[in-house]
Design a protein around this nucleic acid. Structure first.
Length: 272
DNA sequence: TTCAGCCTGTCG
DNA sequence: CGACAGGCTGAA
């Protein structure tokens, strides 16, 4: 579910309440979930009495940095957090998988579709682990590196932008929105893009993501921030989820196609 | 590169 | 009832 702007919003929220907080208890509400991911209850319990030093994000990954280990979440399609000073989690649409009790409140993790993943990595190893896991963050990469990374690839541009090993953070929403803003057809082969088009793409990637963060992400179905509120960027979407509707630039109906199994909405006239 | 699979929920 | 959903993986 959450792409870079949503995870960034959650990160900011959790930082406000979790930095310096001590974990007092972990309650596992869904053992099957942990088992299928090879996560041991004991390694979760080892986090008890550790303090959260900071909360980080790389790509779509959210990292709770404890005194001795990093607890890393990939939220999949529907993973979400809810922090509250109270034990009431009725705001969530399903029952939580994990309940963390801190000395200053409760953090619930839930995921109705269960596509999320969790890792526990020793603190001194997690940065290297992140480097091996995914490519540079979409907001961190330089324009030079971005162009170098894309040059010569024979993949379709949409496929490459969504490849987390290349650039981390873009998902289906922001890739469709980005390609529309840049006027580039999602089916284009990367190697056919001019230097100018690549720079346009980079510029729009930065501005789109920053605008989405400023509006606290896109809430289509499940996404909520760290405190249960929705984002507002969905109101600014120009193409995502709008197949058949008139293109905001030229008025022709937006087309819909499948690229690598992901629904893709675009304008066949404005995106060349 | 396509497709099924992993899951549950919602919409038409 | 089928189609589809902010993701990703592994097999054909």
């Amino acid at each position: 579910m959450p792409e870079l702007p949503e995870v960034e919003t959650i990160k900011g929220d959790l930082k406000k309440v979790l930095i310096g907080a001590t974990l007092e208890a972990v309650e596992i509400k869904d053992f099957n979930y942990l088992n299928k991911r090879g996560l041991k209850v004991n390694s979760l319990k080892e986090l008890i009495n550790q303090k959260i030093l900071t909360v980080e994000r790389k790509g779509k990954l959210l990292i709770l940095v404890f005194s001795k280990e990093a607890l890393i979440f990939h939220l999949g399609m529907t993973g979400a957090f809810f922090f509250s000073p109270h034990e009431d989690y009725s705001i969530l649409k399903a029952s939580p998988i994990l309940k963390f009790t801190f000395n200053r409140g409760f953090l619930f993790f839930y995921d109705p579709r269960k596509f999320s993943r969790i890792w526990i990595i020793p603190k001194e190893q997690y940065e290297l682990w992140l480097e091996n896991q995914i490519g540079p963050d979409a907001l961190e990469i330089s324009v030079r590196d971005f162009i170098t990374l894309l040059k010569g690839s024979r993949k379709r541009i949409k496929t490459l932008l969504m490849d987390q090993k290349k650039i981390a953070g873009l998902g289906n929403i922001y890739t469709d929105e980005l390609l529309f803003r840049a006027g580039i057809n999602p089916f284009r082969q990367v190697s056919s893009l001019s230097e100018n088009e690549l720079m346009e793409l980079y510029y729009h990637m930065q501005t789109l993501l920053r605008e989405a963060i400023a509006l606290r992400g896109s809430s289509i179905r499940n996404y909520i921030d760290g405190f249960g509120s929705k984002g507002a960027f969905q109101e600014r979407h120009q193409v995502y989820g709008k197949k058949g509707q008139p293109c905001p630039k030229c008025g022709n109906p937006l087309l819909y196609a499948s690229i690598n199994g992901r629904g893709t909405t675009f304008c066949n006239y404005c995106q060349r």
